[in-house]
C-alpha cells in the first residue's frame, strides 16, 4: 500500500502559521517525521491558497524537498496553486485532485498531462457526489475516459471514491460499505487504474481517541479489496504495522468479519475484540454509535 502522508495540512494551525511566516523548520520537521515513518509520498494540502499563490507554493515545495527525497502530492482545488506547485517538483508528483466537474476537467486534468504526473480523480461531478456505487462507477468511467482522450493513461489515474464519515446519521455506514464494493470492482471496469482514498475522513466527527482504530480497520478492509494507496497518517505506528503485514492475526479477524462470520469473542484479547467490533460497524452489521466498543 502506498501511503501518502497527510500531516502537512493547512487546517492544522501550526502548519498554516508556518506557511504564512515562512517557518521552514516546522514544515520540514513534519516532512522528515513522515519520511522516517516510511510514508511513500508527502501530501501538501494547501487549501484554496488565494494570496501570493505562486511565491508561496515555490517556497513550500522547495522547503519540503530540502528535507525529504520523497515525491510530493500537491493537494489543492485551486488550479493556479496546483500548477505553481507541480512546476517545482523534482520527482514525478501526484496531482491531488481532479474530478468529473466541468471546471476540473477543463483546468486540472490538462495540468496532469502538461506535467506528466499521476493524478487523483474523484467521482465528484457537477451534480455533486454520486449516491450509489453504480453511479460512482458511471461517473468515474466517464472522467477517466476524458483523461484518456487528453493523453493520460489509466495507469496514471488514481481513482478516489470519496470517503465520508461513518458516524453521520445512518447514511455513513452505507457509504462505507459502498466504497469497499467500489474498490473491489474497480479493476474490472477500468483495468490498470490505481486508487486512493482520504482515509481519515471515515472517522471525522468521532471522539479523537477512537479515530485511529476506525482508520486502521477500514484501511485493512480497503486493502483487502485492492486499494492501491491512501492519504493517511504514517505516524500511526499500528496503521503502518498493518500495512507491513505485521499483524496477521487481527487482519485475519477483520477479513472474517467482512465475510460475515460470527466470531466467538470470548476467546479473543481485548484488542482483537475491539477490531472485530470496529469491522462490524464498518460493514454496517451493527448500527454506529460513539459507544461501539463498549457494547
Amino acid at each position: 500500500m502506498i501511503i501518502i502522508g497527510e500531516n502537512i495540512h493547512v487546517i492544522a494551525k501550526d502548519v498554516s502559521v508556518a506557511i504564512r511566516e515562512r517557518n521552514a523548520k516546522v514544515i520540514q520537521a513534519l516532512a522528515m517525521e513522515q519520511t522516517g515513518a516510511k510514508a511513500d509520498y508527502i501530501d501538501l494540502n494547501v487549501g484554496p491558497m488565494k494570496k501570493d499563490t505562486e511565491e508561496t507554493m515555490k517556497w513550500l515545495v522547495n522547503c519540503v524537498q530540502e528535507a525529504t527525497d520523497l515525491p510530493l502530492s500537491i493537494d489543492t482545488m485551486n488550479p493556479v496553486a496546483m500548477e505553481a506547485g507541480l512546476k517545482f517538483c523534482k520527482k514525478r508528483p501526484l496531482l491531488n485532485s481532479a474530478s468529473g466537474k466541468s471546471d476540473s476537467k477543463a483546468q486540472m486534468l490538462p495540468l496532469a498531462k502538461k506535467y506528466n504526473c499521476d493524478v487523483v480523480i474523484s467521482v465528484m461531478t457537477d451534480k455533486g457526489m454520486p449516491p450509489e456505487v453504480e453511479t460512482k462507477i458511471e461517473s468515474i468511467m466517464e472522467t477517466v475516459s476524458h483523461a484518456n482522450e487528453l493523453g493520460i493513461p489509466n495507469e496514471d489515474c488514481w481513482v478516489d471514491p470519496i470517503i465520508l464519515p461513518v458516524s453521520t446519521a445512518g447514511e455513513g455506514q452505507k457509504i462505507a460499505v459502498g466504497n469497499l464494493e467500489f474498490i473491489k470492482i474497480l479493476q474490472d471496469v477500468l483495468p490498470g487504474v490505481k486508487s486512493t482514498v482520504g482515509l481519515s475522513n471515515v472517522s471525522n466527527g468521532v471522539p479523537p481517541h477512537l479515530r485511529p482504530i476506525l482508520n486502521r480497520t477500514y484501511l485493512v478492509m480497503l486493502g483487502r479489496n485492492g486499494l492501491y494507496s491512501a492519504i493517511a497518517d504514517p505516524l500511526d505506528e499500528e496503521l503502518m504495522s498493518f500495512m507491513k503485514g505485521e499483524l496477521p492475526q487481527i487482519t485475519d479477524l477483520i477479513y472474517r468479519t467482512m465475510d460475515g462470520e460470527e466470531i466467538d469473542l470470548s476467546s479473543l484479547s481485548q484488542k482483537e475484540v475491539a477490531y472485530v467490533k470496529t469491522a462490524k460497524v464498518l460493514m454496517a452489521q451493527t448500527l454506529y454509535s460513539d459507544a461501539w466498543l463498549e457494547i
Binding site: S167, T168, G170, L287, S289, D290, A291, E294, I295
Partner: peptide, 15 residues
Amino acid sequence: LDINLLKELNVKLCK
C-alpha cells in the same frame, strides 16, 4: 433526533 446518539445513550444507560 439522531439514531447514532440514541443508540449511544442506550448503551451507556443499559450498563
